[in-house]
Design a protein around this nucleic acid. Structure first.
Length: 271
DNA sequence: ACGAAGCCCTGCAAGC
DNA sequence: TGCTTGCAGGGCTTCG
């Protein structure tokens, strides 16, 4: 389940292999992702040079002289570089054959991901227009969260997972950051104090930065066949640990569903 | 404007 | 063992 750190790790892994390379051919084996892959994508990309790559939220953006390829990995998506001739497996939906001889292969069993094309400026695209700030910039801080949350009755966990508030805080990291900040996930966003939001903003940054650093240790895998991103499961305090002992106080961690998402917290450490 | 629910999809685990 | 059922989840979309 690629969250922001995994997307960032993917970006860093594929960038050196794609930048300034030409797309020789695009092969689409399965067109039906979250939205259909644009029918004209292969002809649009053929022969075009990659001029830049970047990440916005959990989207990867590959830029060409007259447009941008937008990639989203959804829940189960993966991008890898494989050698030409590597047999495609069941869920290998797209191949981007590049001039170096490698293939950038898009895999996504659950097909929650997306592969789109736009000729608009990225910030004007409907998917990007309403996005909040990146979490790892100074735009996200306690004051910002405090201001944005006034009057909001939504649970604070749902609030920080709202991409119009701040992007890239998925379920795992929302759970972790709230634990580390000592805040109950179900508490109304508008009732969290400024001081608590300062802590929360800090912990969001720390948790994401640590995960990116962990992913970064296995960057070379992106050239291999198993391409799994480095995870940092061993550092998770609450996610996936419902019913187990809190690592700080030994109380049993509680589980509840908040906006359809598994939520785990320590009733003793989080208030 | 806000908040909650619905939906897309497959793999996996649990239950019978 | 082989089926069925339930759940997981990002995030856009729809509904109240």
């Amino acid at each position: 389940m690629p969250e922001l750190p995994e997307v960032e790790t993917t970006l860093r892994g594929i960038s050196p292999h794609l930048l300034n390379q030409k797309i020789e051919q695009v092969l689409v084996r399965h067109w039906q992702l979250r939205w259909p892959v644009p029918a004209e994508l292969p002809s649009l990309l053929k022969g075009r040079e990659v001029l830049g790559l970047r990440r916005r939220a959990k989207y990867l953006i590959v830029s060409f002289d007259d447009g941008h390829l937008i990639l989203h990995l959804g829940m189960s998506g993966r991008l890898r570089l494989v050698d030409h001739g590597t047999p495609a497996q069941k869920h290998d939906h797209l191949d981007f054959q590049i001039s170096s001889g490698k293939i950038l292969r898009y895999t996504d069993p659950r097909r929650f991901g997306a592969v789109l094309w736009t000729e608009d400026a990225i910030d004007q695209h409907p998917l990007f227009r309403h996005l909040g700030p990146e979490p790892l910039t100074t735009e996200l801080d306690g004051d910002y969260l405090f201001q944005r949350s006034r009057g909001r009755r939504m649970a604070v966990k749902s609030f920080v997972m709202d991409s119009t508030v701040v992007v890239g805080v998925g379920n795992i990291y929302a759970n972790e950051a709230l634990f580390l900040a000592g805040i109950r996930p179900g508490k109304a966003a508008g009732r969290i104090t400024r001081t608590q939001y300062v802590r929360l903003a800090e912990q969001i940054k720390i948790v994401l930065a640590k995960a990116i650093a962990a992913g970064g240790t296995t960057l070379r895998d992106f050239l291999g066949s198993d391409g799994k991103p480095g995870y940092f499961k061993q550092e998770l305090f609450v996610y996936g640990r419902g019913g187990e002992a809190c690592l700080q106080c030994q109380a049993l961690l509680k589980t509840k569903r908040l906006a359809q998402r598994a939520t785990v917290y320590c009733a003793n450490c989080q208030h």
